[in-house]
Every structure is written in structure tokens, then in C-alpha cells.
Computed example of a mutant assay.
Amino acid sequence: MITCSDIIKKFKLKLRAGEQGVDRMVMNADISRPGLEMAGYFSHYSSDRIQVLGTTETSFFEMLSKEDKVDRMNKLCRKETPCIIITRGIEPPEELIAACDRKGTPLLSSDDATTSLISKLTSYLETQLAPETSLHGVLVDVYGIGVLITGDSGVGKSETALELVKRGHRLVADDNVEIKEISKNVLMGKPPQLIEHLLEIRGLGIINVMTLFGAGSILQEKRVMLNINLETWNKDKMYDRVGLIEEKLTILDSQITKKTIPVRPGRNLAVIIEVAAMNYRLNALGVNTAEEFNDRLNEQIKSQSLKGN
């Protein structure tokens, strides 16, 4: 959860009034510039958003009568309003300062340009307020692709991640991955702070990947793009041998590509995952080997059928 105090610290804002409300929660990632409200139209006032006042709003405000100024500021400051921010180092009107102190609405000021501050605020709030979940698995960065390795306990997820790190790839999280849905089908994964940089290897214990392999072996956060699900080889199960079967893993309201890899002695899982990541990149560029092979096979079958006739 984010409070007004967090916003102040993050963006180095100055508190000008309404100090008693600095612990108010910020629940909405949208930001408003109350231009119509300055003109007196409050019918659709989004009072649960951070309100940002720039040169346009404050210059119009100065044109109002004393009574209108007091009225507008009293209506602008509500108990559900997280805070009001004045940009470009503009001196806050005394009517706004009085209303914020009276209503307990934090009044903040910034030297940044209005558009610049709104852009940074929006990006920060969308990330911090995004839907979040956690999954049991390992997240690694392989050739720039965030690969989420899942599977039953003891199947070899951490050992495979260790081999990938030795081959020059980067570990993001082991055992537990915190995932946020920044937007539709955009999932960002990171480790819980308690187990950051750590990897558990059965029989060996917990190792610090950054200490052993250097700072270049770890990553703080990575977009989750591909799921490799490891499962013990089942001889009675038919596994995809061509690559035409498209599986998806649903996380929150988003979906990512899923590949099920059977595990048995002798299979080099790290190499398989490397190839899966490279193949994913090719598919994103429009190159699909499985579909090309299928088209070639169908063409050959059609050609032989015509010859037979």
C-alpha cells in the first residue's frame, strides 16, 4: 500500500499544508488536473485521485473572486483526496493552504514541470498499485527472456537455474516469485526481499548467487514471458514432438506461453531452456519452425496424392 508520505519521499516533494493527512492511502493510479473544478464544475469530480495543479489551473484561479476562491478550495479538499500537488515551484494560494489545513488534505509542491511530474507519478503508481500474486518457481533471465521455471518440488528447478547461471544467464528469484500485472499480458517478477540473490540446492544448502558468481549473475526484476514446466517423464503420456500445441499459463488476468518439458536422467535441461528462450524470440519475430515444417509436410502429402492420381 502507498501513502502520501511515500509519495513525498519518492519524489522529494515539499509539504506546504495539511500535515495531519500525510498517512492517507493512495488507492487510485489515475491522476487529475482539476481544470473544470476550478471553474466550479464538481459533478464528476474524481476526488479519490491525486490532484495536480499547474500554471493553467493556478492562473485561472487567480481570476476568481475571493468568495469563489474559498469555495473552490473547500470543495477541492475532501477526506478521500490523497493529496494536492502544485508544480513548477508555484506559490500555493492562501485559500488552498487554509482549506488543506482545515480538511487535513496534504498540500505538496514540486519544482518539476507538470507533464513531467504526472508522467513519473503515473508510472510509479501503476507499478505499485498493480494486482499482485506469488508463485512457487524459479525466475531466470535467459537471453533477455524472463523464463519462469515451474514444477513439483524436487524436480530440479533450482539445479537447472544454477546451471543456467553458470552458463552466463541471470537469476531473478528462487522458490518464490512475486509477480505484478503492470498491464494486460505484462507481468513483472521479482524475489521476496528475504530470499533475494539466494538459491537453495538440496544437499548443499542455501547459496548466495551474487557472492559466488558476481553482480552480473543476478537481476532485481524481470518481465515474465515464458513458462517452462518441468515434470517427471511419464512413458504413458504423449508429449508434443513438433511444437504445434500451444499451451498457456494464466497468471492473474494475463497469459504467457507455456512449454512442458519431461525430466529424466541424461536430459540437459539448461540447454533445452536456452533453446526454448531463443525459439520464443524467433516466434516473436514471426518465425515459427513448427508451422513451417507442418506446411512443408502438408505440401508433400498433397504433392504425392496428386502423383498417385
Rank of each mutant, 00 (worst) to 15 (best):
I7C: 04
I7G: 03
R16D: 10
R16E: 12
A17N: 05
A17Y: 03
M25F: 13
M27C: 05
N28T: 01
A39G: 06
G40D: 07
Y45V: 02
Y45F: 12
R49C: 01
I50H: 04
L53M: 06
G54M: 05
E57C: 07
D71V: 06
M73F: 08
K75I: 08
K79Q: 10
T81Y: 01
I85R: 05
T87S: 06
E91H: 01
P93F: 02
P93Y: 04
I97Q: 01
I97V: 14
A99Q: 05
D101I: 00
R102K: 15
P106I: 06
D112K: 09
L117R: 02
K120C: 09
S123C: 13
P131F: 07
L135Y: 13
L135D: 04
G144E: 12
G144T: 13
L148H: 04
S153I: 07
G154A: 03
V155W: 08
E159W: 12
E159M: 15
L162V: 07
E163P: 01
L164N: 13
G168W: 05
V172W: 07
A173Q: 09
K180A: 04
E181Y: 00
E181T: 08
V186H: 11
G189C: 12
P192L: 04
P192A: 05
Q193D: 08
I195M: 07
H197E: 11
L198S: 00
L199G: 06
E200L: 08
I201E: 00
N208R: 04
T211N: 05
A215F: 08
E221W: 00
K222C: 14
N227R: 13
I228M: 13
I228V: 15
T232N: 04
Y239D: 09
R241M: 11
R241D: 12
V242R: 13
E246M: 14
E247S: 14
L249D: 13
T250S: 14
T250K: 15
I251Q: 06
L252K: 01
S254A: 04
I256T: 06
I261Y: 14
G266N: 12
N279S: 14
R281W: 07
N283W: 03
A284S: 13
L285W: 13
G286F: 15
V287Q: 08
V287G: 10
E292V: 11
F293H: 12
L297T: 12
I301V: 05
K302H: 11
K302G: 10
S303D: 13
S305I: 02
K307R: 10
